[in-house]
């Protein structure tokens, strides 16, 4: 199949889903864009207000900082899990995958309270540490950035595990055998075979996790400190508290723009891959 035929076939398969999502996503999105411009007024006032607001700039900075660090930590944690899963026999792997999925089935709100019990000043970890060292230990692990990171990576890691695992399983085992025959060391095998060939999974995982973390607000609100304010908190503030949908929509549009920019590497990767195969 040539590249052109390939993409034609792809278009045929994708179009029903695309039409549905256009209808249910694109129309409201256009409406949000319209609202952000002040409706029929078509003014950029909301955007001007945002860009000159300290509150917005600080939240934007915090949001990016938290999203990037949560994504990177999730990548490291998730990659290790995916590596381990890839080496299991299929049946055991299936069981482990269910374990990875378990946190999904618990509400984010309940998990946040559970973390208070685990990480709190009198939580499980501090109690064990106090007992081990025979002195009162009260490490501050919630109501600060650390708590936010634990809460977010707990939620995000599975989203890294699955795409990376798919990439790892797609690697031809013959490559590993060849490397082994040539007496390559495990580190060398990892850096010349495993890592580069799992890159599509990494890019897919990291971009989706980044996009998700841009919209977080329950976890920072419950586990974070006073400076851990995300843009989503601001959207909530303008939508429900001040009813200023103009501003809320403008933040939404800027968030969407960031998401689009972030998905660019994934698209670029995909294109390169297609070009490579053709």
């Amino acid at each position: 199949m040539t590249g052109v035929e390939n993409s034609r076939a792809a278009a045929a398969f994708v179009s029903p889903a695309a039409l549905v999502s256009l209808a249910i996503a694109a129309v409201p999105l256009l409406f949000i864009l319209y609202t952000s411009l002040g409706g029929a007024a078509l003014s950029l006032e909301a955007f001007e207000n945002l860009l000159t607001s300290t509150l917005f700039r600080r939240s934007l900075y915090t949001t990016l900082e938290i999203s990037v660090s949560a994504s990177l930590i999730s990548l490291v944690l998730g990659y290790v899990v995916a590596l381990h899963l890839a080496r299991q026999p299929p049946r055991r792997r299936a069981v482990y995958m269910v374990l990875v999925l378990l946190p999904f089935w618990t509400s984010i709100l309940v998990k946040s309270y559970a973390f208070t019990v685990i990480l709190g000043r009198e939580g499980v970890i501090n109690l064990v540490l106090s007992w081990v060292f025979g002195t009162q230990v009260a490490l501050p692990m919630i109501l600060n950035r650390f708590g936010v990171m634990v809460g977010m990576t707990n939620y995000l890691t599975p989203f890294i595990v699955f795409p990376v695992l798919a990439s790892l399983l797609a690697i031809d085992p013959a490559l590993y055998r060849a490397a082994d025959i040539m007496s390559a060391r495990p580190m060398r095998i990892f850096f010349t075979i495993t890592l580069p060939l799992s890159l599509p999974g990494i890019v897919a995982g990291v971009s989706s996790v980044m996009v998700m973390s841009l919209g977080f607000f329950v976890i920072p609100a419950l586990l974070g400190g006073r400076q851990d304010v995300m843009l989503a908190n601001l959207v909530d503030f303008y939508t429900r508290e001040t009813l200023d949908w103009n501003m809320a929509a403008a933040i939404g549009v800027l968030l969407l723009a960031m998401v689009v920019l972030l998905s660019a590497p994934a698209l670029w990767m995909r294109r390169n891959q297609l070009a490579g195969k053709a």
Binding site: T116, G120, R121, G123, L143
Partner: peptide, 20 residues
């Protein structure tokens, strides 16, 4: 001296109960 500026009302109690 403020450890938490609370967003959700139930947390005003849970933080006290857990000695946070």
């Amino acid at each position: 001296s403020v450890a938490k500026w609370v967003d959700s009302t139930p947390q005003t109690i849970t933080l006290l109960q857990t000695n946070e």
